[in-house]
Amino acid sequence: MSKEKIIYGVYGDDDVILDAVKAIREKGHHIDEVYTPFPIHGLDTAMGLKYSRIAICSFIYGCIGASCALFMFWYIMIHDWPMNIGGKPSFTLNENLPAFIPVTFEMTVFFGAHLMVITFLIRCGLYPGSSSKSPDPRTTDDKFLMEIHTNGDAKKIKEIKDLMKKTGAEEIKEKE
């Protein structure tokens, strides 16, 4: 079996690469990665990427935050040391709930936002000290790069290269 080869196609315009992704996928090729300097709307569906579930994570984290807050109020204000402040005693969580709403809200937002960001960083493998995986540094400036992995089949490589050229790639590179 021949060696695996990676083909890079560099494009100069977001609309061109979006059309190119659609055209190349129509021909039955799998696009492994696209590096862009800014988000292109519709690129994820064109590439066949699944919908991100990060918003669902945030909802769950928010629920955890609200529960933690309520547990904290119950433990601190009702169970551990009920205080009578200004003639307003703390008997049950239910009765005191109106006073707890602001902090419950803040805790929900706090958990929802921070844990979502941490999830995002972990899932994307982003952390201080991590290095860029982009094969071309111009992809954070004004170039758009498409990456296709092949099993080294010469016919397939030629087909992909021709397709890239036809769809408007400015440069085509090959790497083993």
Binding site: E33, T36, D44, L49, L126, S130, S132, K133, S134, T139
Partner: peptide, 10 residues
């Protein structure tokens, strides 16, 4: 943080 602008990351 090693950002590289992948489609999934965006």
């Amino acid at each position: 943080f090693g950002w590289s602008g992948r489609a999934k990351h965006w």
